[in-house]
């Protein structure tokens, strides 16, 4: 059976959920061979094996952390040359997409980004994507070269599928470009204890209607009652009420949770672009004409300062 290269997104050996989803998709096409780079890489093998990786290629070198993107491209290319896979799958993070695209050019292949589903097809893997702020769904293929495809979080279930997961060290020789962009310093994002925005099953977002940083406590309380991540519209971020890393939309994060709750958000096209594929959408807005109501499964026309605390209290009391 053909092998499929899967790029592993991990933090010091802790594999992030989108990579496990990728393994589910990779198994539809062939046998997953994982590539884990950087500090802690070997530590990823256990969990990758549990989810279907037949082999785990690892490389640890200071270059992966000290320079931007290119060392990882060099390593992925080395893995590509070693494995001769039928396809290369990479998580659709900002960095993942850059790595994948540079690899595609190097190996003379086409690239598809931000797939939301993947199936085996007669002419190679078929990727489902959403286009134009998710108003269209397309099916596409890489028609030249070995397909390189990046896949968005929440595109497939995580499934246990025990496999050998034999760890092999990958030999990487870095290109002249590898040390071109130096990472002078890195400030990790402070953990809030809440789920990662792009991976969360539930996202609770606030917009301009929240009317002040201090009021975001209401949104956070609702999120915590549901075990959800917190999102924000660009208007709320631009006003300085919530960090940019929580922005949902075209220039923020793209989320696709089971449940999305928008409070005080009008539903501009750029916001919809980042949340329209959510399974269930709920909105609270005092303006019955707000475009967000076109998307909702359930909407409350009302003042969020009344509705949100009442909802939070009700959720907490139902949980007992």
């Amino acid at each position: 059976m053909a092998e499929v290269l899967v790029y592993v997104d991990h933090v010091d050996g802790a594999v992030r959920k989108p990579t496990l989803e990728l393994l589910t998709l990779a198994r539809r096409i062939g046998e997953p061979v994982a590539v884990a780079l950087g500090s802690g890489a070997a530590g990823t093998a256990g969990v990758l094996a549990e989810h279907g990786a037949v082999r785990v290629l690892t490389a640890e070198a200071p270059e992966f952390a000290d320079y931007l993107v290119v060392p990882k491209v060099d390593a992925l290319q080395a893995a590509f040359d070693a494995v001769s896979p039928a396809a290369v799958l990479v998580p659709s993070s900002a960095e993942g997409k850059e790595i994948a695209a540079r690899l595609a050019v190097r190996i003379g292949s086409g690239i598809i980004t931000d797939a939301v589903d993947l199936e085996a097809g007669e002419l190679g893997p078929v990727a489902t994507q959403s286009a134009f702020a998710a108003s269209f769904t397309t099916k596409s293929r890489v028609s030249r070269g070995i397909p390189v495809i990046t896949v968005k979080p929440n595109s497939a279930p995580v499934e246990p599928a025990p496999a050998a997961g034999a760890v092999e060290t990958l030999a990487v020789s870095f290109s002249a470009q590898a040390t071109g962009t130096k990472v002078l310093s890195r400030t990790p994002r402070e953990s809030t204890g809440r789920p990662e925005l792009t991976e969360a099953a539930i996202v609770v977002s606030g917009g301009r209607g929240v009317n002040g940083a201090e009021n975001f406590g209401l949104i956070e309380a609702l999120a915590d009652s549901l075990g959800a991540a917190v999102g924000a519209s660009r208007a709320a971020v631009d006003a300085g009420w919530y960090p940019h890393s929580n922005q949902v939309g075209q220039t923020g994060k793209s989320v696709s949770p089971q449940l999305y709750i928008a409070s005080g958000i009008s539903g501009a096209i750029q916001h919809r672009a980042g949340m329209q594929t959510s399974k269930t959408i709920v909105a609270i807005n005092k303006d019955a004409e707000a475009p967000i109501f076109d998307l909702v499964d359930y909407g409350i026309v009302g003042d969020l300062f009344q509705v949100v605390p009442q909802l939070t209290e009700e959720v907490n009391s139902r949980k007992g």
Partner: peptide, 16 residues
Amino acid sequence: AGTIVKDEGEGGKQLA
């Protein structure tokens, strides 16, 4: 088309 409800004081509970 989803259900859209005007809050008459019980909106949060209805949503729950």
